[in-house]
Design a protein around this nucleic acid. Structure first.
Lengths: 215, 215
DNA sequence: ATATTTTGAAAATTGTTGTTACCACTCTAC
DNA sequence: GTAGAGTGGTAACAACAATTTTCAAAATAT
């Protein structure tokens, strides 16, 4: 009897079943990212996604419950990757003075997220106003980013370079500023460069946090 | 012969034909605003909009080319009304010193736009990522608001309270900050009050514009 | 080699939605 | 009152998209 065939052990075309599924999933996510950001989420049909990914619709529904699930996963993944990158880089910069850490944070985030213009497009345009579930997910991430920025601000305060206060709303506003600048960058072919945006955000953020006393 | 019946002269139910059309149009826009912000733009059917407005689908297509046209007009109208209000109030405050004008600007904008939570919801959530046309329209308005803020900043600079520089990117970021705070306000039942938001935006904006020299 | 699993493509199903056409009714003009 | 324009509701239509199912071919294990 073939008892050890219990779960996904049988190779096919040289690859494990789990591996094949993972690859199809990856290809579907790639294709969806491409179509969602070119034709738009609404007008991107599942059939076209599957064609582009070289996957049948049957396999699509094997991996995802529907189109929105794909969008959710892309959104989640984009944010998670960016957050991971930022925390990793900031862990390295443990020695730096707080104001320098903020520079590092922004550079890491921006360079990561602007490497592929489709990324900000998906996260800040296509994934907006799709469903209550996605809206909640977005809100969670915004809160998370804001908390992160706020904790950095508190670090600056503890260092004595900024007043000790509640930074939650300030951080929320800064997240919005970053979002809008990236949305503009992604939309306009040549309105502004990434380095200009980085510079602007740095100034905006340091001014808002340090809030130097009036002369 | 009834020759003067050329165009919409015949009254009906006591009202002119143009007037009736205008009223239907207004009721349709109201109903659409309600449904777009409750069930979401996507899942709001034209039939339901018409029912809520007390208008037949035939009349709907007499007024609008489709659902998206309604959303466009709502978006345009919301921005136009807000802009008109702000410019009017700011015209009044011609005498004030530039920094005071910014306070006036923010208060006027926020009090106008938060009077009905559906307004920020439609402008900053539902109208996002719908179509290239709407995205362009949104972009135009963002640019317009940013220009407006930038010109106020230049006024502060001319007054000698801020450096004379290019404020375009700063203004764009500030628009984003306002947008995000309103989006959060509109989403969370009780996360933050309008006055807290107003206070935060005031500080954010003044810090960004005045950019007081480092100690 | 044969039975079995896995696969991709396409057909069938199902449901929705935008859009147009129709109809009985109301209101005005004469 | 009657003719005729204007009205709101409903039903019919067409188009499209999502999801499920079927089917035969390809690949593997024994």
């Amino acid at each position: 009897m073939t008892e050890r065939a219990a779960a996904g052990a049988r190779p096919y075309r040289g690859k494990d079943i789990d591996q094949r599924r993972a690859e199809r999933r990856a290809r579907l996510l790639d294709a969806a990212l491409e179509l969602f950001t070119s034709t738009g989420y609404q007008h991107a049909g599942i059939a076209r996604i599957c064609t582009l990914a070289g996957v049948s619709t049957r396999n699509f529904y094997e991996e995802f419950s529907g189109k929105e699930a794909v969008l959710c996963e892309l959104h989640e993944r984009i944010n998670a990757v960016a957050m991971e990158r930022v925390t990793a880089v900031l862990d390295e910069a443990r020695e730096q003075e707080p104001a320098g850490r903020i520079r590092v944070l922004i550079d890491a985030f921006l360079s990561g997220v602007t490497a592929d213009p489709r990324v900000p497009r998906l996260a800040y345009v296509e994934a907006v106003g799709v469903s209550p579930a996605l809206e909640r997910q977005h809100r969670r991430w915004v809160e998370r980013w804001a908390s992160y920025i706020a904790s950095e601000a508190e670090r600056v305060a503890a260092y004595g370079q900024a007043p000790s206060r509640d930074y939650r709303l300030t951080a929320l506003g800064l997240v919005g500023a970053i979002t809008e600048l990236l949305r503009a960058w992604q939309a306009g072919s040549s309105s502004c460069s990434v380095s200009e945006i980085a510079e602007e955000i740095r100034e905006l953020m340091l001014d808002a946090i340090i809030r130097r006393p009036a002369p």
